[in-house]
Simulated assay, not measured.
Amino acid sequence: MFAKLESLQDKYQELERELSSAEVFSDQSRYRQLTKRHSELGEIVTVYREYSRTMADLESNKELLGDSDPEIREMARAELELLDAKIEDLQRQLQILLLPKDPLDDRNVILEIRAGTGGDEAALFAADLFRMYMRYAERTGLRTELIQASESGTGGVKEGIASISGNKAYSLLKHESGVHRVQRVPATESQGRIHTSAVTVAILPEAEEVDVHIDPNDVRTDVYRSSGPGGQSVNTTDSAVRVTHIPTGLVVICQDEKSQHKNRAKAMTVLRSRLLKAKQEEQKQSYDQNRKSQVGSGDRSERIRTYNYPQGRITDHRINLTLYRLEAVLEGEMDELVNALVQHYQTEALKAETEEVGS
């Protein structure tokens, strides 16, 4: 591990020299590539340097254990305990940073939310979740763009699709895929009984044309007049687009934009992302046949989280985490949930790699 860390530190220093070159700066494409790689290596080099300094401090304190002054020896022993704990923590950080990176982590995201069992109450909760993710994205510095929203008659959302873009969007949100369950008393419930409803969330890495090739002959495009709110030009022109991928039967509808061409471009982005997700799931199923302890299933059929309104409680069933701050989370304060999930799956990945090395 340490030979690899030394090599990465050398590469980091080499990149620093290259980035200071006027020749590299004049080639903006190459400059961006090197800046990105420099940034990626920066985190691990910073931790490695802190580890090296801590190890040096450890050796210095070990020497003080032989000092003739008993007070200095006691201080050295106390300091060694702190340094040992710090080194253990830094070693774990380095192991995680050296794990193979998910090549999709830097991608933008297509967020899809659909009301499940529960009728109008499920649609209302789908709207709540849609708003939660939009607010979280804004708080995190990510950009959001509505692609499609199919509203229910009660102000809920039957289906909502949005693009979330920015630094490591997929890395932050990829563990949100699955069935989200809500337990609360609907506004229409006269006897105060708690109802349980479900909403499905899908987080798709935004696919690029190089990821998924779509034969134009495999796509049927229908245009029609948009329905619902949107202004005069939206409702009186054939700007809405329905794209059908004939081989798979996947259908994407987009009518948010006034321009038919913009709607089609958005619909094709969603279609590519769905096809990429299907391709990933197919590869994962093949992998799972050979390895049962696969990390991060992303299975959309499993219940991953429960939102209990009477108790103000959120429980993530995958990591047995319960928070009593439902209202804040629904306002987009999701950092504690997101960070706990990222840490959990990093730990699982580390265990899996350790098992493979040992086998």
Rank of each mutant, 00 (worst) to 15 (best):
Thr221Trp: 01
Ala349Thr: 02
Val243Leu: 14
Tyr48Thr: 01
Ser165Ala: 14
Ser259Asp: 13
Asn263Lys: 04
Pro229Ala: 15
Asp69Asn: 13
Val251Glu: 04
Val251Pro: 01
Gly358Ala: 14
Ser165Val: 07
Ser286Trp: 07
Ser197Asn: 06
Glu159Leu: 03
Ala240Ile: 06
Arg139Trp: 00
Asp256Ile: 03
Pro205Asp: 09
Thr248Glu: 04
Leu250Arg: 02
Met134Ile: 13
Val241Arg: 08
Gln13Cys: 00
Glu14Gln: 15
Ser239Leu: 04
Ala267Asn: 06
Glu112Ile: 05
Arg242Thr: 01
Gln191Cys: 08
Glu331Met: 08
Arg30Asp: 00
Thr140Met: 07
Val157Tyr: 00
Ile147Trp: 00
Arg73Phe: 02
Arg193Ile: 00
Glu348Arg: 07
Ser190Gln: 12
Val182Leu: 13
Val24Gly: 04
Tyr133Trp: 11
Val185Ser: 10
Asp218Arg: 08
His261Val: 14
Val252Cys: 09
Leu129Gly: 05
Arg114Met: 02
Tyr309Asn: 01
Arg77Ser: 05
Asp256Gly: 11
Leu146Asn: 13
Arg131Met: 02
Leu99Phe: 03
Arg303Tyr: 05
Lys11Cys: 01
Met1Gly: 07
Arg325Trp: 00
Met55Phe: 07
Ser177Asn: 11
Lys174Tyr: 03
Gln93Arg: 14
Ala187Arg: 09
Glu281Asn: 12
Glu356Asp: 05
Leu19Met: 12
Val252Trp: 05
Leu98Asn: 06
Glu355Thr: 10
Arg193Thr: 05
Met75Thr: 12
Ser273Pro: 08
Asn108Trp: 03
Asp299Arg: 07
Arg220Gly: 12
Glu206His: 05
Gly160Thr: 06
Gln95Tyr: 06
Ser163Asn: 13
Ser190Gly: 06
Ala56Arg: 09
Tyr51His: 11
Gly66Leu: 08
Ala3Asp: 15
Ala202Asn: 10
Ser301His: 08
Leu104Gly: 04
Thr306Gln: 02
Leu15Asn: 01
Gly296Gln: 03
Pro100Tyr: 05
Glu74Ile: 01
Lys174Ala: 02
Thr248Cys: 06
Gln91Ile: 14
Leu41Trp: 02
Leu337Glu: 08
